[in-house]
């Protein structure tokens, strides 16, 4: 269970560093974010939700059923678009309106 930060997309704003409840994300000497211990990630997705550069991707470890898919979230106002890119390249999008309560 962990996240991956795409270096090229990171603008070094620090939002993910602030968001992580486990203090896992740090800056490298170039001022870009990296996760210090991927195996310590709780999978809460806080960092991804705070990143405005869409640089953070989420994946399931192979030990919990992962197949190499990467998930990312794009936020536009109250709308969150969760995009899952499978290992075969196929993408799947789930749209969540954060103004709507959960049905369940």
């Amino acid at each position: 269970m962990s996240i991956r930060i795409e270096r090229e997309r990171c603008v070094g704003c620090g939002a993910c560093v602030e968001a992580c409840p486990g203090n896992l994300i740090k800056f490298d000497p170039d001022g870009r974010a990296f996760i210090r211990r991927p195996e310590d990630c709780w999978g809460c997705a806080s960092c991804m939700k705070e990143c405005r550069s869409e640089a953070i991707f989420y994946y399931l470890g192979a030990d919990v059923g992962g197949r190499g898919a990467l998930m990312q979230v794009k936020r536009d106002g109250a709308i969150s678009r969760w995009i899952i890119r499978g290992y075969d390249g196929a993408t799947f999008t789930i749209v969540v309106d954060r103004k709507q309560a959960n049905k369940y």
Binding site: M1, S2, E39, D40, G43, L60, G61, D63
Partner: peptide, 15 residues
């Protein structure tokens, strides 16, 4: 439950 790579994939907050 997941003692390896996903050791922090637990219910309660691992921190």
């Amino acid at each position: 439950n997941n003692p390896g790579f996903s050791r922090h994939k637990m219910w309660y907050c691992p921190f």
